[in-house]
Amino acid sequence: MKRNNVFREIGGLLRELKDKAEVTVYLAYSGLLYSSVGIASGALKMEEQVDELRLKLQELVLERGEELGLRTALAVMLLVESLESISDSGMKLASIVSRELETHPVLDLAEEEMEEQYLLLEVDRDSFFLSRKIRDLGFQDTMGIRVIAVKRKGRWTFDPSEEFRIEERDLVLVSGYRAGIETLEEAEKEVEVPEE
């Protein structure tokens, strides 16, 4: 029985860990920007997933350390710890978001030209998102945009899977490069406040 390529496996898990850690932070920032506890709570869910991935990676490194070599094993462990601390920071930021939180004028960054931008959209009948699966959006490829959360009937789904299909009246929270977000902003219906 041929064992799977440990380098592929670790590479994939590391990439996933980095993604999830980033989404944790994105959810915390957008939770802050929109004063939304609902969005910020997603950071907590993400952090749990980050923890699971970290455990998986640690086990894998220990089990197959010989194949990896000591240097690589140690470097991977260090990478994992750093990424986990990032998601931890995101979670701590999310914990201070509350509905009564008044946005400090300095934090009115939604108006500023940040590199990584956030946008909350409502899916109406003309929306590009209507009835599409996340995978079919092809957003990451063409626009550098990622769907980080979807609210449907009062409930949030964070970091939705590729199979997730978007429906009318869904609220979609996206993050991405400024150029792509600006394009979306013009085409779609923006929402200022996600009702809690």
Binding site: N5, F7, R8, I10, G11, G12, L14, R15, L68, G69, R71, T72, L74, A75, V76, L78
Partner: peptide, 11 residues
């Protein structure tokens, strides 16, 4: 402490 080339390629 560079990563094994195969891991870097996978990344």
């Amino acid at each position: 402490m560079s990563l094994d080339t195969r891991l870097r390629e996978s990344l």
